[in-house]
Design a protein around this nucleic acid. Structure first.
Lengths: 212, 212
DNA sequence: GGGCCCGTTGACCGGCGGGTCAGTATGTTG
DNA sequence: CAACATACTGACCCGCCGGTCAACGGGCCC
C-alpha cells in the first residue's frame, strides 16, 4: 500500500516523521518491542496512517538500513586519502567509521552487531560483507608491498570490520568511558597494529601528517 | 511454578530434554520466533508440562546462558598455562574460546554477538564484562613487563574479547571458509599482533613449544 | 460543481501464542 | 489403602497487536 504513490511535500514530511519516531523507538527498546501504535502515537497520528506510508513494520527497517549504509560509505570515502599507503587508508576508514557510528547511535543501536532478528540477517550482513571486501582489497595491496602481514586478506579484513563494529558497540552501550574521537584514534592504532608487518611500518601509518 | 520442587531422575531427564529442544529451536530460528508449542512438540510432550519445569520462556534462556558461561570459562582456564608469559596466555585463552565456540554453535548462535533481545542484554553483557576484566588483568602484567603496547588495558581487552566473538560469529554464519582449528590459530595470531609491543615479542608468544 | 487523488481517522477484526487449570496417572510412604 | 508427592495432558482463556476498511476532508484541475 505504499509503493508507487505520489507524495506531496506534506506527505514526504510525514513519512520522515514516522521514520524518525520509529528509529527512536527501535533504539530505545528494540524492534520487536516496538508496537506500531507506539510509532504513530509518538508521531501524533492515527494508526491507519502508518500503512499509508509503509507496507509494514519491516519496510521501515529496510528503509533505515539502506539509507544508513549509504551514509556510512560516504563518510568512509570522504575520510580516505586515495594517494596514501594501504595501512593508512585502512586506518582512516576505520576512524571515520567509528566517528560516524558514534554520531548515529540511534541507528546503530538498532542494528547492533548485525543481529536484531533473523529476518534481517541478510540485509545487514550484506553491509558488512561489502565493507569487508573493500578492506580486503586494500589489504591485498599492503601484503603485496610488504607493509601488511602475510595472511588471508579476507580474514584480516573481517578483523578490521569486526573491531570497528564491536568498539562501536562497546562505546554505544557505555562500557568504554573515552569520548568518540579518542576511541576512534585508539581503534585506528588497534587495526594498524593488528595488520602491520612490523611496528616501524605501523608507526609510519599512524604519523600525523600524511607525508609519504 | 518451577522453583524448589524435587525432581526425580525422570524429571531431570525430561527437563534436559526440554532444554535441548529449546536450544535447537532457538539456534534454528531465534528466540522470538520459537513458540513454546514448538519446544514441547519437539520434546514430544504436552504444553502444560513446560510450565512444570520452567517459570516461562525466559527462564530457559537464563538457564542456558548460565550453564554455557560456566563451560566457556572452564575451557579457557584449562587451556591457559599459568606459568606462561602474558601474551601467550591471552593467545591460549583466545584460541580455546574460539574452539569452544565452534563446537557449541548451537548455543552461541543463540546469543550471537550478545544481542538477541534487550531483555537479556544484562545477563549476556555480564559475560563479556567478566571475560574482558580477566583479559585486562593479564594485559596489565604485559604492559608492566613491556611485552604489550602501552594503552588502556581495558580497551585492549575489549579488542581481544571482541575479536574472539566476531570471528566466532563470522565462522558460525559460514563466511570464513577455514576450519575451526585454523581459525583459532589465526585469531591467536591476530590478537597477539594487535597487542604485542613489537613483532619479535609477538613471534615469541606464538612459537610452538611453551619454552620460556 | 464534479471528479480525483492525497492524507487522515479510529473502530474493528482475527489469530496467534503465552499462560492457566482441572483432571489423571504413576509412584512412594506410613 | 489412604495420603501425598511428582509427572503429564490438552482444552480453554484472554490480551495483545498487526493489519484492514469505510468514511471523511481538502486541494486542484477541467
Amino acid at each position: 500500500m505504499a509503493d508507487a504513490r505520489q507524495l506531496t511535500s506534506q506527505g514526504r514530511e510525514r513519512k520522515v516523521q514516522l521514520i524518525e519516531a520509529a528509529a527512536d523507538l527501535f533504539a530505545e527498546r528494540g524492534y520487536d518491542e516496538t508496537r506500531i501504535v507506539d510509532i504513530v502515537e509518538r508521531a501524533g497520528v492515527a494508526k491507519g496512517l502508518f500503512y499509508w506510508y509503509f507496507e509494514n513494520k519491516e519496510a521501515v527497517v529496510r528503509d533505515l538500513v539502506e539509507e544508513n549504509r549509504h551514509r556510512l560509505r560516504q563518510a568512509q570515502a570522504a575520510a580516505i586519502d586515495p594517494g596514501a599507503e594501504p595501512l593508512r587508508r585502512i586506518r582512516q576508514g576505520a576512524e571515520a567509521s567509528l566517528e560516524h557510528m558514534s554520531s548515529h547511535t540511534r541507528f546503530f543501536s538498532l542494528i547492533e552487531v548485525e543481529n536484531l532478528d533473523k529476518q534481517f540477517a541478510d540485509v545487514l550482513r550484506q553491509g558488512t560483507e561489502i565493507h569487508a571486501r573493500d578492506v580486503a582489497d586494500i589489504i591485498i595491496e599492503g601484503i603485496a608491498d610488504g607493509t601488511i602481514r602475510d595472511e588471508d586478506p579476507l580474514l584480516l579484513a573481517y578483523g578490521v570490520v569486526g573491531a570497528v563494529g564491536y568498539y562501536g558497540h562497546f562505546h554505544r552501550t557505555g562500557r568504554v568511558a573515552v569520548d568518540s574521537s579518542d576511541l576512534a584514534a585508539f581503534v585506528g592504532r588497534f587495526v594498524v597494529s593488528s595488520l602491520a608487518a612490523d611496528e616501524h611500518i605501523a608507526r609510519r601509518a599512524l604519523a600525523p601528517p600524511a607525508r609519504r
